Amino acid sequence: MVKIVKTQIQLLVIILVGIIIYFITNINPIEAAEQPPPEPATAPKKDSEMIPFYWMIIIVGGCIAFTLSYVSWRKYKGEEKKEKDSNS
């Protein structure tokens, strides 16, 4: 049991380190432009700027959902075992 938990913690740490490295390496410096700002009709859509935010929501939400599912499953198994032991 302890070995499984350690393996899961190591996997979670590896995933989190990978995410942090990804965000650190994708930081782009902002440079001042000498051009006038584009007209509103030719400006890029704001949806493309929200994509990293959506990925962050998916990753964090997935980790939370996985953790809650795992804890609920362990609680269910523990209560099932406790009930089985008390009936014996």
Rank of each mutant, 00 (worst) to 15 (best):
I64L: 15
G62D: 12
T42P: 00
Q35Y: 07
Q35T: 11
R74M: 09
I20E: 09
P40Y: 07
F66Q: 12
N26V: 05
W55F: 15
G61S: 02
A41E: 15
P29A: 03
L68W: 09
W73A: 00
K81N: 03
K77W: 00
E79Q: 07
G61H: 02
E83N: 12
I57T: 00
G78S: 13
S88C: 11
E80F: 01
K3S: 14
E49V: 06
A32S: 15
N26E: 11
E83D: 14
M1R: 13
K84H: 11
A32G: 12
L11I: 06
N28H: 14
S86I: 10
C63I: 05
A41R: 09
T67G: 02
G78D: 10
I30C: 01
I4N: 09
T67C: 05
E83R: 10
S88M: 14
V17E: 03
I19N: 05
P37V: 04
V13G: 03
E31G: 02
P38S: 01
Q8G: 02
P44D: 13
E34C: 09
S86K: 13
K3H: 11
E34F: 09
A32F: 14
Q35S: 15
Y54V: 03
P37D: 13
V2M: 08
L12V: 05
F66N: 13
Y70S: 12
K81L: 12
K84G: 04
D85V: 13
I21S: 13
K84M: 08
N28C: 10
I58Q: 08
I15K: 11
I20P: 01
T25W: 14
Y22Q: 07
N26T: 12
P38F: 00
I57C: 01
V17M: 09
M50R: 06
N26W: 10
C63V: 05
V71S: 03
M1L: 12
S48G: 15
C63H: 02
N26C: 08
I4F: 06
Y70K: 13
A41S: 14
I15G: 03
K45I: 09
I58N: 02
Q10H: 08
G61I: 00
K6H: 09
E31V: 02
E79D: 15
S86H: 10
W73R: 02
E49K: 07
G61N: 02
G78I: 01
T25H: 12
Y76D: 05
K81P: 00
T7Y: 08
V2E: 10
